[in-house]
Design a protein around this nucleic acid. Structure first.
Length: 205
DNA sequence: CGTTCGATGCACT
DNA sequence: GTGCATCGAACGT
């Protein structure tokens, strides 16, 4: 459904929390409840990749809504966004954390490092770099049409808890905008953990 | 618990 | 050449 993404970005943010992100390739399916996202909106947003104007890398931001924007960050991590707003209006939403649902065994394998202790299930998709590693998302998924059957958001909502908004994290500029949304108390949300007992999804063990 | 810091590739100036 | 929309290991408290 293209129209879902063809709207003001902050509206999409609110509707994205609690929905299920799915990636399937070569018969391997992984999915998780979206519990943390950040909006990057327009050339006037200094933290948005569109801030310098159109470049080869940020071209997906200027394209049609409902497509993926994936890029390599710090030379190490892939970060995945969903492109929003009308064609020519550069904006996107960064997927920062998921509560694992399907393919948890695959996620454990992708996140596991030889000789290291196993990653806790709540940490499998905690942080944007971990989301892509656990989901198997790379540059190959850049520009993918999210209305297709390979990478998409399911049209169902899981009540994971109350939603809160705050400043975006991990950026040096543009921190005054409260464009980060997350599920309060959910274990997979990045940053300091407030409560140690609440927020575990029944589905994510 | 907390903070610091190195890894690592590439877009952009 | 500079600086990241990060992660996790290593160390200090």
């Amino acid at each position: 459904m293209r129209a879902f993404y063809d709207r003001p970005t902050l509206e999409v943010v609110g509707d994205l929390i609690g929905k299920v992100l799915v990636h399937q390739r070569r018969g391997v399916r992984t999915s998780g409840v979206i519990v943390e996202v950040e909006a990057y909106i327009g050339e006037s947003d200094p933290a948005c990749h569109a801030a310098p104007g159109p470049t080869p890398r940020n071209q997906p931001l200027y394209g049609a809504p409902g497509h993926a924007y994936v890029y390599l960050n710090y030379g190490i991590h892939y970060l995945v966004n969903v492109v929003t707003e009308a064609h020519g209006s550069p904006a996107a939403i960064l997927i920062r954390a998921l509560g694992p649902l399907e393919g948890v065994d695959v996620m454990r394998r992708r996140r596991g490092r030889p000789g290291k202790p196993a990653v806790h299930d709540d940490d499998l998709c905690r942080g944007p770099g971990n989301v892509t590693r656990a989901m198997g998302i790379t540059l190959a998924e850049n520009r993918l049409d999210l209305t297709g059957d390979r990478l998409f958001v399911e049209d169902r909502r899981i009540d994971a808890g109350p939603i809160a908004w705050g400043p975006r994290v991990g950026i040096r500029v543009g921190t005054e905008q409260p464009w980060r949304a997350y599920v309060v108390g959910q274990r997979a949300v990045s940053g300091k953990r407030v409560d140690s007992s609440a927020g575990r999804l029944a589905t994510s063990r």
